[in-house]
Amino acid sequence: MTAALKDEALVGLWFIGQKYYPRQCNEWTYEPDQPIFKALRNYLADYFAGKSRTFDGRLNPQGSPFQKMVWNILLTIPLGQVATYGQIAKSVALKRGLTTMSAQAVGGAVGHNPIGILIPCHRVIGFDGNLTGYAGGLDKKKALLQIEKVNLANLNRRTQIEI
């Protein structure tokens, strides 16, 4: 994975080579001893070991106001649960005072999430319970949900969550 920081906040966490992987990273400075990267390594080690904890660093994803709204909603999806693009679209519509919002527009924002895992875009599924779209690849999305003990066999029978 590649991580990026700016002004002591995490601005990116990507699987190497994933869709929307940043092009300019060749020009970045390699400074693995930055405190936020140490915190990130500790968090990820625990996460991949199946231990639940919060990340003790500041997140500052770069994007449009709409994208940031969607990413903030993603942060409300609890560990081990999932939400649909449609549910998130309804939440965005409510926050913006609209009657409807396009689930496809939400999908675009979810797909461009620059801080994978920590902003849990992998917890977003299709309306029918299918694992749809993930910039890191569906194999990684499935693995992340398995780490979080999501019952993949019952996704189409999941309980709706409030977001």
Rank of each mutant, 00 (worst) to 15 (best):
N130Q: 14
G63A: 09
L131W: 13
T132W: 08
G50S: 11
G136Y: 12
G107P: 10
H122S: 12
V82C: 11
T132E: 05
L74F: 07
V106E: 08
Q81P: 03
G133I: 07
G63V: 02
W71P: 01
Q81Y: 14
A105F: 01
S102M: 06
L94V: 13
L94F: 13
L144M: 12
N151V: 12
G136H: 12
H112N: 15
A89M: 06
K95Y: 01
T100I: 04
T100G: 10
H112F: 05
K142A: 14
T132R: 13
L74T: 08
L59R: 02
D139R: 15
D128S: 09
R96I: 02
A103P: 08
A109W: 14
M101K: 07
N72F: 06
P120A: 09
G86T: 15
C121N: 15
I115E: 08
S52A: 06
D56K: 14
R58L: 12
T84M: 04
D56R: 09
Q67T: 04
K149M: 06
L98C: 10
G129H: 10
F48C: 08
H112T: 07
D128T: 12
K142Y: 11
I73H: 10
F48V: 12
L144E: 06
S102V: 08
G80L: 12
D56H: 04
G133D: 00
F127P: 07
W71T: 01
L79A: 05
D56L: 03
K51R: 15
S52M: 08
A109F: 13
G63I: 06
M69H: 05
V70E: 01
T99G: 13
V124S: 03
A109C: 05
L144W: 07
S102L: 05
Q67I: 00
A49Y: 00
I125Q: 01
V124H: 04
L79Y: 11
T76R: 15
